[in-house]
Simulated scan of single mutants.
Amino acid sequence: MCDQKFKNVSPLMNELIDKAKNIFKFNGEIAKQLFLYDAFDLNQKVDISVERMYFSEVIKHVPKTFTIKLFDEHQSSSDFSVIDFKTLTHANVYDGDTMVLTIIVYDTEGDDWMFRLNNDIRLPAKHIYFHSIKWDVDYVKPEIVLMYELLDPIDYHQLPNYKNVIEALSYYQFVMLRLVVGDDRINQALISERKAI
């Protein structure tokens, strides 16, 4: 059953899927659930990722009944003229007082995706996501989701499920995660998850 405060998330996401699904990828908890169970629950807060050049294309499909707050590394604002587009890190979308969507911005150079926290870490952009045949949507690979969740200060507002995801990673995916975040950060995340449960 849908929590009433998230009742407008599914219609919002269906609109974005209908109008812009080829230019964004599901991220966060939705991506992890797609990876682990091929589950697709839009009755909760949603995270998506979009390449910087397509950000405005996604935003234009968010109905005016929602409030959009933009963030860079130093400030946040609902005034689009205040935030420098080149330093935009993410936007939060609110339904009243409830944050219902986070749009995470990523950059590419040529055909390479760049990890925002360390631009020396790059992958071919076409290798940062999987496609769910069942739901016909793209989602960010779990090791990349975890790289951001374990290192980025964005508050994802969701209970962690690091253990399940880490255990489901392939050897290559785990090595990639480990190289980027390190053993200490992985261990800290697993300990914090156990405490949260």
Rank of each mutant, 00 (worst) to 15 (best):
D107R: 15
H127D: 12
Y139E: 02
T102Y: 12
R185W: 08
N161Q: 10
Q158G: 04
R116S: 13
M147Y: 02
Y171I: 04
N164G: 10
W113F: 15
Y156E: 05
I121D: 03
L123G: 02
V175P: 00
F130D: 09
H131Y: 15
R185K: 14
F174P: 01
Y148N: 03
D183A: 07
V175A: 12
I128F: 10
L177H: 03
I103W: 15
K141L: 10
L190I: 04
P142F: 06
K134E: 14
Y129T: 07
Y139S: 02
Y172H: 12
K163F: 11
Q158Y: 07
R122M: 12
S170D: 09
D107F: 05
V105Y: 15
V140D: 00
H157R: 12
E167V: 00
W135C: 00
E149W: 02
N161D: 09
F174W: 07
I191H: 10
E149Q: 13
K163H: 11
D111C: 05
Y148R: 06
Y171G: 04
V181M: 02
I121T: 07
I121V: 13
W113I: 06
Y129G: 04
L150C: 06
F174N: 02
N161P: 02
T108G: 10
V181L: 01
L123A: 06
I104Q: 09
V140A: 06
D183I: 07
P160M: 08
R185M: 08
V105Q: 13
L179T: 10
K134Q: 14
V137M: 05
I144T: 02
Y156I: 07
I186T: 03
Q158P: 00
A168V: 01
D155M: 10
Y129W: 11
D136R: 13
H131D: 13
Y172G: 06
L123S: 01
A189W: 04
D111V: 11
I133W: 08
A168F: 08
L123K: 03
E193F: 09
E143N: 11
V105I: 15
Q173H: 14
E149N: 06
K141M: 11
F130L: 12
L123F: 09
I104E: 08
E167C: 09
V165H: 01
I144R: 01
D152R: 05
L159F: 09
V140W: 01
V165T: 06
M147R: 00
F130P: 00
D155W: 06
I133P: 05
V145G: 00
K134W: 04
I103A: 11
L117M: 14
Q173N: 08
S132P: 10
L150F: 07
M114D: 05
F174M: 02
L177K: 04
N119Y: 14
N164M: 12
T102V: 14
K126E: 11
H157C: 04
N118H: 14
K163P: 01
D184N: 11
V137T: 09
D184H: 11
W135E: 03
